[in-house]
Amino acid sequence: MKARVTVTLKSGVLDPQGKAIEGALGSLGFAGVSGVRQGKVFDFDIAETDPATAANLLQDMCEKLLANTVIEDYRIEMV
């Protein structure tokens, strides 16, 4: 089973990398770009065939390693 986990900073958490990207895009001539937020994407091939069990495994991975749940949110998608 294939899955994707997207980790992003929570709303209200400062994102200096997003601001740097926003500034660089403006310098490159991409006008009208604002509110840039950066994140991480993880793609998985999981041996588990039950979607609910796979989702639980991924949630445990996020809580224990992939996301800092104090400042980050995560989204799990089965693809």
Results as ranks from 00 to 15, higher is better:
58 L>M: 08
31 A>N: 13
70 V>W: 06
50 D>M: 04
5 V>L: 03
15 D>Q: 09
46 I>N: 01
44 F>I: 02
53 T>P: 03
34 S>L: 05
79 V>H: 09
73 D>C: 08
50 D>W: 03
72 E>H: 07
69 T>E: 14
41 V>R: 03
72 E>W: 05
71 I>Q: 06
5 V>H: 00
21 I>A: 10
60 D>R: 15
7 V>E: 02
35 G>E: 06
26 G>I: 13
25 L>M: 10
35 G>H: 08
20 A>E: 08
48 E>R: 01
62 C>D: 05
24 A>Q: 07
36 V>T: 02
36 V>H: 02
14 L>S: 12
60 D>M: 14
18 G>A: 08
58 L>S: 00
47 A>I: 06
61 M>N: 06
43 D>N: 06
1 M>Q: 03
67 A>Q: 02
79 V>L: 13
29 G>C: 04
37 R>Q: 11
66 L>Y: 04
1 M>P: 01
64 K>Y: 05
5 V>D: 00
54 A>I: 04
20 A>P: 04
34 S>P: 02
3 A>K: 00
9 L>C: 12
27 S>G: 13
45 D>Q: 09
67 A>P: 03
58 L>F: 02
13 V>N: 10
16 P>L: 07
50 D>F: 04
44 F>L: 05
26 G>W: 11
22 E>Q: 14
34 S>N: 10
24 A>K: 03
10 K>W: 07
11 S>K: 15
11 S>V: 15
65 L>R: 10
52 A>E: 13
51 P>K: 02
45 D>Y: 04
52 A>V: 12
76 I>G: 00
5 V>W: 00
37 R>N: 08
63 E>G: 06
23 G>A: 15
48 E>G: 01
56 N>M: 13
11 S>F: 14
40 K>M: 04
25 L>S: 02
79 V>Q: 10
78 M>T: 07
46 I>A: 05
30 F>R: 02
51 P>N: 04
72 E>P: 05
62 C>A: 12
11 S>D: 15
18 G>H: 03
41 V>W: 01
33 V>K: 02
59 Q>L: 13
62 C>S: 12
24 A>G: 08
2 K>T: 07
31 A>H: 13
13 V>S: 09
31 A>K: 13
58 L>Q: 01
4 R>F: 05
20 A>V: 10
77 E>W: 06
30 F>G: 03
35 G>P: 04
77 E>C: 09
61 M>A: 15
29 G>V: 05
38 Q>K: 09
63 E>T: 10
47 A>M: 08
